[in-house]
């Protein structure tokens, strides 16, 4: 790797994160399953296909409007499974606690983790705790892992997008990261945006109920919508054409972006998904999404084209065109 030490930007979910994985992790750990770099690994066991995923949570602050690290750590892992179409079978959670951490806070976090698990219809079935010295874990870090079963006839992977497919987005973007930025209070910004943090597995169930022909699902977390679209274009070796006008951004989120010079298309979400669906199933899937509470603002934002493979073209609000590149460089730390 080009850098001799780890930078904050290596954790931002953009190109440097990709590089860290491609140049440092994969040379040691590479295998056909891991190399797909999807949200979960697909494993086959006799008679069934399983999805397996793991994710660490280091968010700061631990409590934020719309959620806390407990809810986030459950939703993030359930969503990674859901993005393969898998229903969660069980969740494992590891807690790295800092000496001096208030048990009252831990109770609140566990309560909200439990509530989120109930919302998702799953349970924490294994766990571990470790305690480290004061100042070594920013209060609390959580790692969750999940196993899910992939239903018969479902094949959802980042590489499956095909020419002519519709690209659907489940609602306004940027809520989670804008909410965290405001909650951190670092930037003398006033106001509140609720994080969209939510388990998406029931929404995905509803979509699969409408059609099993969903090609790709992705939740635009770190790196935001722009990075996820770019990843899909690259994994599937197709081009994407997306309309800026169709992408919703709440005015409060836009306000945060205007002040800090951010592009909302690069802000993290924790309760949104992007679906790539064959055109003839798009209507059914979209209407199933709209009738689910977490997808009621769903909208088709573009389509997959044969031209410009690996590139995402954005038609701007005023009718111009530009490329959407993945997040590059430093994004703000500790958002998930």
């Amino acid at each position: 790797m080009k850098n001799s030490s780890i930078l904050i930007a290596h954790g931002a979910g953009g190109q440097l994160s990709h590089e860290l994985i491609a140049e440092l992790f994969l040379p040691f750990l590479e295998n056909p399953v891991l190399s797909n770099l999807d949200d979960s690994a697909l494993l086959t066991a006799p008679g069934t296909r399983l999805a397996l995923t793991t994710d660490a949570y280091v968010v700061k602050p631990l409590f934020f409007p719309g959620g806390d690290i407990g809810r986030l750590s459950l939703c993030g892992t359930v969503n990674d499974l859901a993005m393969m179409g898998a229903a969660p079978l069980g969740i494992a959670a590891s807690f790295i606690l800092e000496e001096g951490f208030a048990t009252e806070k831990l109770e609140r976090i566990l309560g909200s983790l439990k509530a989120a698990a109930e919302e998702a219809g799953t349970e924490v079935v294994a766990g571990d705790t470790k305690v480290v010295e004061r100042g070594k874990a920013d209060g609390l870090f959580i790692t969750t892992s999940g196993v899910g079963a992939v239903p018969e006839g479902v094949d959802i992977q980042g590489r499956n997008a095909r020419e002519g497919d519709a690209v659907i987005l489940s609602g306004p973007v940027g809520d989670h990261e804008a909410g965290i930025l405001l909650a951190r209070g670092d930037f003398s910004l006033k106001g509140t945006v609720l994080s969209d943090c939510a388990p998406l597995n029931h929404l995905v169930d509803a979509m699969l109920g409408a059609s099993k022909e969903i090609h790709v699902l992705r939740d635009p977390t770190r790196g935001g919508l722009a990075t996820v679209l770019w990843e899909i274009a690259n994994s599937s070796e197709v081009g994407l054409e997306v309309e800026e006008e169709a992408i919703q951004v709440r005015s409060e989120v836009m306000g945060v972006c205007d002040l800090l010079g951010f592009d909302p298309l690069y802000l993290a979400n924790e309760g949104k998904l992007v679906a790539v669906v064959p055109e003839k199933h798009a209507e059914k899937v979209l209407s199933a999404m709209k009738s689910h509470p977490l997808g009621k603002s769903s909208v088709a934002i573009g389509r997959v084209v044969a031209g410009h493979p690996g590139r995402v073209h954005l038609k701007t609000r005023i009718g111009g065109h530009r490329l959407l590149e993945p997040l590059s460089g430093e994004q703000f730390p500790r958002i998930c």
Binding site: D263, K315, T316, R317, I318, G319, G320, R322
Partner: peptide, 9 residues
């Protein structure tokens, strides 16, 4: 100018 694609117009 870049973000709104003005050059392309």
């Amino acid at each position: 100018i870049f973000r709104s694609g003005i050059r392309s117009l």
